[in-house]
Design a protein around this nucleic acid. Structure first.
Length: 641
RNA sequence: GGCGGUGUAGCUCAGUGGCAGAGCAGAGGAAUCAUAAUCCUUUUGUCGGGGGUUCAACUCCCUCCACCGCCA
């Protein structure tokens, strides 16, 4: 193991996606890890980038009427700009359309082909256009069959190229079992082993150009391009000199940490290791799958509109506060909840009350009583004094932070620093410098303030990887200089130069008020939801035609555990709708109810059954109740609004 | 349906075969340097239910319930 070298990667993001909190989180986390290792003096390399090939890019480019390359050149800027805004310090940004990447992908393919690791075979079966993957009948959505395919699945018969992934199955199982740190957290490791219990098939790594032309051409057959995942995964090594710069490759690879979201586990823990094995390249030390940010308790999704926009928080509270929240709030690996209420609570208690206020009270006294200069103090007092106790707490934070970064629990590292900061607040209470300031002998006051500033200095260095700009501002305010902190900063007492002049600075973390009832009266306090709800005009509302409807019949949709098919009477007209309420209502419970439906919704086929309309229901978390009509014997077909 | 996980204070979560914990929230008090911030004290627990092993179980075993993940 190369001890002092640290190479961290994020997935390369699909260039067509709109950057969201998930992208921001992974990248920010990698940045925090990279900055932490730089702080510890390790030879650090941080790679991120974009995945730019594939069907969706081609389609989007066609739609805009521009060549795919021009399209991705435009799209990639959104990621580059976001990383700049979020203070991301990647050392390299790789794009899969760059020659340095495509050339290596082709070399790898040729090599594997020459060595018989890739072979040609007939494929006869189903292909999912949307995910660009081959599927079996079992993979079809419920309600569909080989005779009744969804639009995005086609029957194809064609020749393709396959990578002999299956022959590495036994090896991979042993490798994962023998290297517990290879896949983390351990429950993801178990999942991968579970996946590997059934037979692994070979991986189709080609797509005929007739269907998809926007990709890397196979070097041994110009009728085909490379399957996107085979192309994309290679970025982790093509960017650090594989087959192009042996010295750099030896220095960087294997990566210490490859961060991924839990949604791309299999590609990274099955495809990627077997590819590396076939190439004869070493495995990365750790593939770490983190969880997702939830909006309250619900999954964020575009359709419900409860997506947190990282930039909005960066604007309102500052980039560093956002970075702090993301690191401090998520137990790495688990899912975590992102709400405005929790964000403000955490911001106020940790950043404003503890750290910000500590800085403010110390510096105010320094400016008032020490002529805006770093006070003159003696060496650190002996063990047993409050000063030594405080310094010990700070040193505990130092060791905890590096230990927890190593353990992939940066949230616990940050928590250790907050403990030290609370100790500093207690220390000030013990020494009561406002009383010391009234004594004739001001030396004790100077000692108190100096020790407090030293504690702040180290804590600022520890939190620098999380909040670079704010912690630099803090360091400047206490006279720690304008250079980035380094290892010396962490362990040595007395780095602040006595007598150095200090400038008064802005408050670091102004307190935020809890979200109050907005000036515009809102219908309800949806404190648990960070969605900003767009206001609509009355005519928008009336675009949806709502009517009462009586439930005549209800039956469960076969093969779907959430759906009921309802036959409704809407003012004499009979209508069929599919409703996702089977987990909350039995068919018997809904028959006879007078519900409210949207009648002019575009008809949809759900699980092979037509649905003409949508019913209204109130839901919160896992609870759900139908919206019904208050009056008994109210006629169906009545307009609602 | 198969495999795995989780269940601890109002909330988020630590934790260990030997006296149930932290942060936030709540209550009371001190202090007045500071961003209405800080500090001290403090309430609440069938440790998901039931059974078993043990001198001793929140911890180990069995079982049931609830929720979650992966696979099907």
């Amino acid at each position: 193991m190369k001890k002092d070298s640290f190479y961290v990667t994020t997935p390369i993001y699909y260039v067509n996606d709109k950057p969201h909190i998930g992208h921001a989180y992974t990248t920010m986390l990698a940045d925090m890890l990279a900055r932490s290792h730089r702080l510890l003096g390790h030879d650090t390399w941080f790679l991120t980038g974009t995945d730019e090939h594939g069907q969706k890019v081609q389609e989007a480019a066609d739609k805009r009427g521009v060549p795919p390359q021009e399209h991705v050149d435009t799209m990639v800027k959104r990621f580059e700009e976001l990383w700049e805004r979020l203070e991301i310090t990647h050392d390299d940004f790789i794009r899969t359309t760059e020659t340095r990447h495509t050339k290596i992908v082709q070399e790898i393919l040729q090599d594997l082909y020459d060595r018989g690791e890739i072979y040609q075979a007939e494929y006869d079966g189903l292909y999912d256009v949307r995910s660009e993957t081959f599927i079996t009948e079992k993979d079809l959505p419920e309600g569909f069959s080989a005779e009744n395919l969804p639009d995005h699945v086609k029957v194809i018969q064609e020749t393709n190229y396959f990578f002999k992934m299956s022959k590495y199955q036994e090896w991979l199982i042993s490798y994962i079992e023998e290297n517990p740190e290879f896949i983390q957290p351990d429950f993801r490791r178990n999942e991968t082993l579970g996946f590997l219990r059934k037979d692994l098939s070979d991986l189709c790594i080609s797509r005929p150009k007739s269907r998809l032309s926007w990709g890397i051409e196979l070097p041994f057959d110009d009728e085909y391009v490379t399957y996107v995942w085979f192309d994309a995964l290679v970025n982790y090594i093509s960017a650090v000199g594989y087959r192009s710069d042996d010295e750099m490759f030896a220095r960087r690879w294997p990566a210490q940490v490859q961060l991924i979201g839990k949604d791309i586990l299999t590609t990274h823990t099955v495809y990627w290791p077997t590819m590396l094995k076939a190439m004869g390249v070493a495995m990365p030390q750790t593939i770490f799958a983190h969880g997702w940010w939830l909006s309250g308790k619900d999954k964020m999704s575009k359709s419900t509109g409860n997506v947190v926009n990282p930039l909005e928080y960066a604007e309102r509270f500052g980039v560093d506060a956002l970075r702090y929240f993301l690191v401090a709030e998520m137990s790495l690996g688990q899912d975590a909840s992102f709400t405005e209420e929790v964000f403000i609570k955490r911001y106020n208690s940790d950043l404003a009350n503890d750290l910000g206020n500590l800085t403010s009270r110390v510096l105010k006294m320094v400016h008032t009583h020490c002529d805006s200069k770093v006070p003159v103090a003696s060496a650190l007092p002996a063990e047993g004094t409050p000063e030594a106790d405080l310094w010990n707490h700070v040193q505990t934070a130092v060791s905890e932070m590096s230990r927890q970064v190593e353990n992939m629990r940066p949230d616990l590292g940050v928590a250790a620093v907050m403990t030290a900061i609370r100790e500093a607040n207690k220390y000030i209470g013990v020494r009561a410098p406002w009383k010391q300031a009234k004594d004739e002998n001001l030396q004790p006051l100077y000692e108190t303030l100096y020790v407090s500033m030293e504690a702040l200095r180290v804590c600022a260095a520890l939190l620098y990887p999380v909040m670079p700009a704010k912690m630099m501002a803090l360091r400047t305010q206490i006279g720690a200089g304008v250079d980035e902190p380094n290892v010396d900063d962490l362990k040595v007492f007395g780095k602040l130069v006595e007598g150095a002049s200090l400038e008064e600075g802005e408050g670091l973390f102004p307190r935020h008020q809890k979200p109050k009832a907005a000036p515009q009266p809102k219908p309800s306090k949806k404190a648990a939801n960070v969605v900003t709800v767009e206001e609509i005009a009355i005519e928008d509302f009336f675009k949806a035609q709502l009517k009462t409807a009586k439930v005549l019949e209800a039956v469960a949709v076969e093969g779907a555990d959430k759906l009921l098919t309802l036959q409704l009477d809407v003012g004499g007209e009979q209508r069929q709708i599919i409703a996702g309420i089977a987990k909350h209502y039995t068919p018997e419970q809904v028959i006879g109810k007078m519900i409210i439906i949207v009648t002019n919704l575009k008809p949809a086929v759900i699980r092979g059954v037509e649905s003409r309309g949508m019913l209204l229901a109130a839901s919160k978390g896992k609870k759900l109740t139908l919206v019904t009509v208050d009056a008994e014997d109210f006629p169906s077909g009545a307009k609602v609004g």
